[in-house]
């Protein structure tokens, strides 16, 4: 299963980058989102997955004994998801403003600030 999931993660990375390399701004955002799925999955899997219980201590016990999922990676992913959301929301609004200001959604046309005069 790890192999399949690893390949899936790689696929998500590839797809994310593919979308970001496109011309369209919307695709860019979609790519950013895809990239964040891929990253989260990567961290989730790299911390070793178990087909086991969540890291929640059962009602009548004080410690976790059996095999359980790694809570650390989950906490990291949670933080990363939320931060990612903040940035994605900002980016989504930003493309709205960029479109309003430039009249285009084609990333290739946004090269004014880099060009030599």
């Amino acid at each position: 299963m790890e192999i399949i999931l690893s390949i899936l993660t790689g696929l998500l990375f590839a797809a994310g980058l593919f979308l970001m390399l496109h011309k369209g701004m919307v695709k860019l955002i979609l790519g950013i989102m895809m990239l964040s799925y891929a990253t989260n999955l990567f961290i989730f899997i790299v911390a070793r997955i178990t087909r086991g219980l969540p890291a929640i201590i059962p009602r009548n016990q004080d410690v976790l004994a059996n095999s359980f999922a790694d809570p650390v990676s989950q906490a990291l992913i949670l933080t990363a998801i939320v931060i990612g959301f903040g940035i994605q929301a900002f980016a989504i609004v930003l493309i709205k403003r960029v479109y309003a200001a430039t009249g285009t959604t084609n990333m290739d046309e946004l090269n004014k600030t880099d060009n030599l005069e």
């Binding site: 690893s6 790689g10 990375f13 590839a14 980058l17 496109h22 919307v26 695709k27 959604t105 084609n106």
Partner: peptide, 28 residues
């Protein structure tokens, strides 16, 4: 409020496929 998708460009897709695939493969 945004216009339609920027048209897909077949040649562009081919060009960007290469880095994407390499990237995905590396990560896997």
């Amino acid at each position: 409020r945004l216009p339609k998708f920027v048209d897909m460009d077949k040649r562009l897709s081919k060009r960007i496929a290469f880095p994407s695939v390499i990237f995905g493969a590396t990560m896997s």
